[in-house]
């Protein structure tokens, strides 16, 4: 794996977000015990993955063993540094982790991964203002950290600062224009901020990006599309002809046909997923189903 990408991944690590950590841990532990990991082609990456999985499974002794091997081999590589930092975070004492990251940054002020972790630690300590400050300073220097922008948008979203969240997210959109998850998130924040015309437009952009006739009906991609259709419908409902958009977005043309099409797509998905056993009684039933069935967007 590319070093820079690996660092970015570590920087955006969140506890227990990886859905397969249990399996990774159970599969990996015997290999660690029997020294079988040494024979793997990706032995060091394997240790890193196992260390994180062990942290997720709260087996700190195992992750300590992995990190010890890595420290012996790579010494003061920033990647190992950050991994050790994550281990310190897992102890539940953010102050110590914060101090650790501060020390890393003193040694090397350009260690962006440590900087990102520091912002995250500040965030879990509840110092959202400090976290935003750090992230802004970080992104001012390292503009192209997409995950950093998404994180900043998240923090702003937490504080209901929708406008700032949208601005931060647009940088992520610029940097990764091919990622529909960011567009969907943008649309959802626009919806939350009450800017319905903008939300409709962005939901439709998501649809335009993701709808693919051949995608299996239960795929992730389909979920994104359906969620976007659902968003379209909801925003259209809250859209009155005299709605004023804070962003001066024009009202969508043919709003009525779009609304109908959205319902059609949702109905289609409903029938396919329930195998035609039942039909939704009303529009509200269908929306109710959509809100419960469509999973929240995974963090890409």
């Amino acid at each position: 794996m590319d070093f820079a990408i690996a660092l970015q991944k570590l920087a955006s690590y969140r506890p227990r977000r990886n859905p397969t950590y249990k399996k990774t841990f159970d599969d990996g532990l015997p290999l660690l015990d029997s020294d079988g990991w040494k024979r793997r082609a990706d032995s060091w990456e394997f240790l890193e993955v196992l260390a994180l999985a062990a942290l997720d499974s709260e087996r700190y002794d195992v992750s300590d063993r992995c990190i010890k091997h890595l420290v012996e081999k790579f010494g003061n590589s920033p990647r190992v540094d950050v991994l050790s930092g994550i281990r310190i975070e897992a102890m539940g004492k953010p102050e110590i982790a914060l101090e650790y990251y501060n020390r890393l940054l003193e040694d090397d002020p350009t260690n962006s991964a440590a900087w990102r972790r520091k912002a995250y630690v500040l965030r879990i300590m509840g110092k959202l203002d400090k976290s935003v400050e750090e992230l802004t300073a970080l992104l001012d220097t390292f503009y192209n950290e997409v995950d950093g922008w998404v994180e900043l948008a998240e923090v702003y979203h937490l504080c209901n600062q929708y406008n700032y969240a949208l601005q931060a997210l647009s940088h992520a959109l610029l940097l990764a224009p091919q990622n529909p998850f960011y567009v969907l998130e943008f649309a959802e924040i626009a919806y939350a901020s009450g800017d319905m015309p903008l939300a409709v437009k962005m939901f439709l952009v998501t649809v335009d990006m993701t709808d693919d006739e051949d995608a299996p009906i239960t795929s992730y991609q389909m979920d994104v599309t359906l969620r976007a259709w659902y968003g379209v419908k909801l925003s259209l409902r809250r859209l009155a002809p005299d709605t004023r958009s804070p962003s001066q977005t024009t009202l969508p043309a043919n709003a009525e046909i779009i609304g109908k099409l959205a319902m059609e797509r949702l109905q289609h998905a409903y029938e396919q997923r329930t195998q035609g056993v039942s039909t939704p009684q009303s529009e509200d039933d269908l929306l109710e189903w959509a809100s419960t069935t469509l999973k929240p967007t995974p963090q890409a």
Binding site: L198, V200, K201, M202, L204, V205, V207, D208, D211, T249, P252, A253, N254, A255, I257, I258, L261
Partner: peptide
């Protein structure tokens, strides 16, 4: 991109 997206989607 969003300027005429509704027309594009409807056409599709």
């Amino acid at each position: 991109l969003g300027d005429d997206v509704e027309t594009r989607v409807l056409r599709k």
